[in-house]
Design a protein around this nucleic acid. Structure first.
Lengths: 166, 166
DNA sequence: CATATAAGTCAACATGGCTGACGTAAAATC
DNA sequence: GATTTTACGTCAGCCATGTTGACTTATATG
């Protein structure tokens, strides 16, 4: 039987491999977002708020259109959550100095604190998975994840931070 | 500068590493689901329909409660999409023989065809990423993804298929 | 027979996507 | 300097998909 699957019909294993990956993405993402979602519910916030807080924290002074490009949602959708976060004092907007049409976004202290709480869980989850898998596996994980992504621009943005400075 | 980051302050790189992983999960998942979402829209279906079709295709004759356990949503939420799929002839229900309360789910031919179309895109995306990364990277990817998941039960279900039969 | 389980239904609500139309201020261009 | 483009925002309405809570029906099990 082993021969039938692994030699006589290599396509079978390949199909199983690919479906396994589909499921890994589904389950990992589901579990990865479950706990922050529960925390956010206590503020009457949702996953969309988390994404905004995360990326504004990650890229301080970014403009609204930069954020739209990362999130790939409409400005109307963003506006709803961003407006709430600004009104409730998690995010501050200030006009750009070179181009005063732009409204640059940054986390307030309150925003930084919430971001920290939300991502703490996710960082620990990743840290555990990385630790248990080893450096070589982490490298493979990164390679495959970069390969799954569509946009070269996104790849560059994500890769930049961990490059060794020359 | 390289020394400052990689030796004098190893925690900095570690933090960057973890945040990179958070972003990889976000971007990879976003891009992974974008194309099936667009296809589903043509049927007036959403991502929830895809998940149901996928898992019923993957586990033929599964019961509604099995599906609920995988999806981790309420039966009311499931009922809406499952009902549509059954009424529109993508999924067939039949009473279990041992326990006639259970309604066992399977794809119809039409359902199989839709499933194939939807996952084709995802399988190709994974295949490309796997091919470009190499077998060792794939192994690492799997290790880390399993580590990110919360449930041992889910891990077992996903791992089972690619085990070498003894 | 009593109780538990599997599945479904109805109602109401929230979140977060979407489209379309329109407005304002600032920058860029002709 | 007038016109056009860009960045951002708003209002209105729609849809998909999650939630809670209450209740029903059929079947299995103690």
């Amino acid at each position: 039987m082993a021969d039938v699957k692994s030699q006589a019909n290599p396509l079978f294993l390949r199909e199983e491999e690919l479906r396994q990956a589909i499921e890994l993405l589904y389950y990992a993402y589901r579990d990865f977002t479950a706990e922050p979602d529960a925390m956010l519910a206590r503020y009457n916030f949702g996953r969309a708020h988390h994404r905004v807080i995360y990326f504004v924290g990650r890229h301080p002074q970014m403009s609204v259109s930069d954020l739209l490009a990362i999130l790939r949602i409409t400005k109307q959708s963003l506006s709803r959550v961003l407006g709430q976060l600004v009104r409730q004092g998690f995010i501050r907007q200030s006009p750009g100095s070179r181009d005063r049409r732009r409204r640059l976004l940054e986390l307030t202290e309150k925003g930084v604190e919430l971001e920290r709480q939300l991502s703490e869980n996710q960082r620990q989850r990743i840290a555990r998975a990385y630790r248990e898998s080893g450096a070589q596996a982490v490298d493979g994980f990164r390679k495959v994840m970069f390969g799954i992504m569509s946009s070269e621009e996104d790849r560059k943005r994500v890769a930049r931070r961990t490059e060794v400075p020359r």
